[in-house]
Design a protein around this nucleic acid. Sequence first.
DNA 1: CGCTTTTTGCGACTCAGTCGCAAGAAGAAG
DNA 2: CTTCTTCTTGCGACTGAGTCGCAAAAAGCG
Lengths: 148, 148
Amino acid sequence: MPLPQTEIPGRLQTQLAERGIRMTGPRRAILSVIETATRHLDASQILRKARTVDASVDRSTVYRTLDLLKRQGLIDELDLMHLNGEGHYYERKLGRDHIHMACLRCGKITEFVSRTFESLKKQLERDCHFHILVARLEVGGYCSACRR
Amino acid sequence: MPLPQTEIPGRLQTQLAERGIRMTGPRRAILSVIETATRHLDASQILRKARTVDASVDRSTVYRTLDLLKRQGLIDELDLMHLNGEGHYYERKLGRDHIHMACLRCGKITEFVSRTFESLKKQLERDCHFHILVARLEVGGYCSACRR
DNA sequence: CGCTTTTTGCGACTCAGTCGCAAGAAGAAG
DNA sequence: CTTCTTCTTGCGACTGAGTCGCAAAAAGCG
C-alpha cells in the first residue's frame, strides 16, 4: 500500500521555512527521507536512510526532528498495532486523516479514507465539546488474503 | 472518568478457567488489580498494586500475564496519546469498543461510545474484506474545560 | 563579518519490555 | 494423598527506544 504522494517533494522544508524554523543539513536529510518514503518508517530506519545523505546525522537529532514535526502537525505518529516491536512509525500528514489496518498474520498495512470517520470526528467535537488536534484509528485483524 | 464496572468481579478468572488456563497466585493478584481498577493502569502500576496482594510477584510475570490476556482478547492495550511517557495502559474489554479522548493540557481521559464508530468498523470489514480483531481510536486535543 | 540564538553530536543514562533458565506450583491420573 | 507431567514463576541479564546535559558548531540576522 503506497503512501499518497500528492505533494511536491521539498514541501516539508518550505513549510518549516514559512514558520521561521532554521534549516540545517541534518534536517534536510531527515526531511527528504520522510518525503520520499514509500512505506512507514520508524526512527532507526529514518536514521539509517538519512545517513546515506549526511553520514554525520545522529540518533538524537532524528528524535528531535521528529518531535519538531509532530509539534508542527506535519507528521503523524503510528503504532501499527506493534507489529514489529514497540517502536513508532511516522508518515507525512496530508489533508485527510486515514485509517490504518494492520494484518496480524502477513503484516500488510492497508490505508483507508472514510467519510464516516470524518463525521465521527465531527460528532465527537460536537457532543463532547472536545477540540481534536490528532485522531488515530488503528485496526488489527486479518486482511482479505489472510482470512481463511 | 470511571471505567464501566458492569461485570462481576472475579469474572476474568472464570473466563480464563473456561479456556482451561491454569490459575496461580500471581495471576489471581494481577487479575484482581485489573478488575478493580478505577482508572487506566500501566504495567508498573499493575505490578505495584499486585505486590500489595502477593509481595513476590515479578515484573516479568506482569508482562507475561498481560500478554496472555491480550491474546485471549480479554483486555485492550492503549497508548492514551503518550501523555506520560512511552508506556502502555490496559483496561478490561467489555462489550462495546469505546473511543479514548486525551486532553493534551490537563491529561483528562474521556471515554465515548458511539454508534457511528460501530458502523465505521462494519464499513471497514465490508469494503476492505478485513476481519477486525481489535480497533483502537485515540484522540488527542483539548477538553471542554481546557479549550479557551 | 560578527554576534546571538538555535541546533548538533556525543556519551551517558533511563525505562519498558524480553529472554533463558532452573526451581516451583498446578492439576490430572492413579 | 502421592506421583508425574506440564505450565508458570522469579531471577538476572539483556535489548532497544527514547532522553538529556553539555560544549562545540552552524544558521541567519544586521
